[in-house]
Simulated assay, not measured.
Amino acid sequence: MEKGGGTLSEIYQSAKKLLLRTRDGLERLERLEYSSGIDSPDLSMSIRNDLSQIQSLCADMDRLWRSVAAKSQRDLWKRKVEQVAEEAESLKGSLDQYSFRNQRRMNEARERAELLGRANGDSSHVIRVFDEEAQALQSVRSSSRVLQEATSVGEAILSKYAGQREHLKRAQRKALDVLNTVGLSNSVLKLIERRHRVDQWIKYAGMILTVIIVFFFWRWTR
């Protein structure tokens, strides 16, 4: 720790340096608290020691400023010493508040640990119940997945059968078209054959009629 010098000015400068270091250390301590909730006992102890040193220096300065001959200088040093003492007291109050918060966190953590310790006897039962529920839920999910797969397979089979049915319908329609076409062709062939036979009969009848006419003409001319 820093020691004060022999003169009032030297002691004052030492106190100001300690105040600056104390303020910086307290800010770092609070940043640790708010960022991660971690305590730094070494830093807390160092700040408390610096504050004790500042208070000791303030006592020395309070004794020395009274011996200043000039009243104006004496009043000036009085205000300076009071400012240092007030700032040191303010920093000490902030450190005490930090210590109180830290102690409260430690108490709460200890109480939580005790509660967890008392509940530890029932924890195995709770965990077992949770495991059974998790297994039941997993079984339900597995059954649902199997059912979905079976449904998908059934839908695929039905879709395949539907496709085959449409294919058979198209084939049936083509077959009917072919049969209809064949039936029409047979009708046309029969009509042609019938016409051919009629033409034959007409030809033969014409030939016979011609022979008869020629015969009668020949008889008539004789």
Results as ranks from 00 to 15, higher is better:
R222S: 09
L76K: 13
T181C: 03
L115M: 09
R222Y: 07
Q13M: 03
V182S: 08
V81F: 04
H125Q: 13
V153S: 05
R48E: 12
Q148W: 00
T221R: 07
W220A: 10
R66W: 03
R101H: 07
I202H: 13
P41E: 13
I208W: 03
T151Y: 00
R195D: 01
R105L: 04
E89I: 10
D177A: 00
L95D: 06
R31C: 05
E2V: 08
S142Q: 15
R173E: 05
T181H: 10
F130H: 11
Q135G: 06
Q13S: 00
S123A: 08
K80D: 03
K160W: 00
K17L: 12
R173T: 01
S144F: 08
G206P: 03
S67P: 09
A156Y: 04
D199T: 13
A162D: 04
E132F: 13
S94L: 15
V81L: 02
L209A: 15
R222E: 03
R145Y: 15
E155H: 09
V129Q: 15
R74W: 01
R170E: 06
S56R: 15
E86L: 08
V198N: 08
T221W: 02
K174R: 10
L76V: 05
L95Q: 05
S152G: 00
L64Y: 02
H125P: 06
K16G: 06
Q73F: 06
G6H: 06
G183V: 06
A171C: 10
A150C: 07
Q55I: 11
G117A: 11
P41C: 03
L176E: 00
L57R: 06
R105Q: 10
R28T: 01
D96F: 05
A162R: 11
E111F: 04
S72W: 06
M61P: 14
G206D: 08
E86P: 01
R118F: 01
G154P: 03
E33D: 13
R23F: 14
L176M: 03
Y98I: 04
L147N: 14
R222T: 11
S72A: 14
R101Q: 12
L179D: 00
H167G: 05
D131T: 07
Q53A: 13
E114D: 06
L115S: 14
R48Q: 13
R48M: 03
N180M: 02
Q135Y: 04
T210K: 11
T221N: 09
R105C: 01
G163W: 01
Q13A: 00
D50R: 02
G37M: 02
I47Y: 13
Q103N: 13
P41G: 06
Q73D: 14
L29I: 01
I192C: 01
F100A: 14
N180A: 11
D75N: 03
A70H: 07
L158C: 05
S9D: 14
V126F: 05
L19E: 00
R105D: 14
R23V: 10
I202W: 15
D62P: 13
D24H: 07
V188W: 09
G206K: 07
S56T: 14
